[in-house]
Design a protein around this nucleic acid. Structure first.
Ligand code: FES
Ligand code: FES
Lengths: 159, 159
DNA sequence: GAAATCAGGACCGTTGCGGTCCCCTTATCC
DNA sequence: GGATAAGGGGACCGCAACGGTCCTGATTTC
């Protein structure tokens, strides 16, 4: 279903959370605020830190903070950080192609499709997802269910 | 990596093959022409037939033919036929949402992203992939390695 | 009636993903 | 300087989805 991984979804939630409130937040704190299980939050933050999307500070009084503001982080970056580079097929962009390389009829054919998706994903920032002030196509009715609400004390998993 | 399934890749190959040569072709014939294993071709064609993208004719002298010409089939249709509807997350478009429905901070937030991708995928047809007469952005250097060639006797798997 | 061809589903091995846990390093605070 | 609070970097395992194959039946032509 052309689905992106759950971790990516969590990453967006976590990043948006980091974009509000205290500048530096600990992973247990974020877990409590978002309802995402703490070990998972920690894992996500570690990956995001490795990708340079968040900065970490160790020791007591440590935690994570955003490196760039939300409106400067396209979701493409998040997806690339968690799921790896966007590559619809194995052979996109000269990567390791399918078995009989050099003979495949689809050689390079997916590249433009990949570009189109990358472009679409690069044009939407985390700020767009946090705040329904949409600047792209497709008016979303989701705006009707919570204008600027997003209080983020909400829970992902119950209890 | 936001990867689409291999079956989808095969489906495109098969569809493009159906777009040239005889109007009606059998699945073993297509398998031989494309190099894709015959059982897999048969499976793909069955799915495509169920989705109404190809028409089948049973019995001797039977086979498959395209319902619409290649330039009238956006890749979004292929992906939807094989991988199911395009849904980045479980909760897109009112589908079954994540566990604690109604409380999730990302509720509906992915919808516009999904629309953007759908739009990108709806704007590229199989004809665009078969023939590098690109009408969309991102000039592809793949055009340099085979203008209109695509003879399709090539093999996907070796041997 | 025989042969060709699709229809539909069952089947299983592999892979990647989701999720959890552990131990070590680093920095603050008393 | 020691205790404590936090992140760093993995290893680990169960599960579900996917890829790939095969079999049995229904349909059409010759
Ligand atoms: S599908 Fe890309 S090289 Fe075969
Ligand atoms: S991520 Fe869509 S409802 Fe939670």
């Amino acid at each position: 279903m052309l689905r992106l991984s759950k971790l990516t979804d969590y990453a967006v939630v976590v990043m948006v959370r980091l974009g509000r409130g205290e500048a530096v937040q600990t992973s247990p704190c974020i877990a409590a605020a978002t309802g995402v299980p703490e070990p998972t939050v920690a894992k996500v933050l570690k990956i995001l830190a490795a990708a340079g999307l968040v900065a970490s500070h160790r020791g007591a009084r440590g935690g994570y903070r955003l490196v760039r503001p939300l409106d400067a982080v396209p979701i493409a970056d998040i997806i690339a950080a968690i799921d790896g580079p966007i590559a619809l097929t194995a052979c996109v962009d000269g990567g390791t192609s399918c078995e009989a390389q050099g003979l495949c009829p689809m050689r390079g054919r997916w590249d433009p499709v990949n570009r189109a998706i990358e472009a679409a994903l690069a044009g939407i920032t985390l700020a767009d997802m946090a705040d329904p002030g949409l600047s792209f196509a497709a008016p979303v009715e989701a705006a009707a269910l919570g204008p600027l609400a997003l209080p983020l004390p909400a829970l992902h998993v119950a209890e």
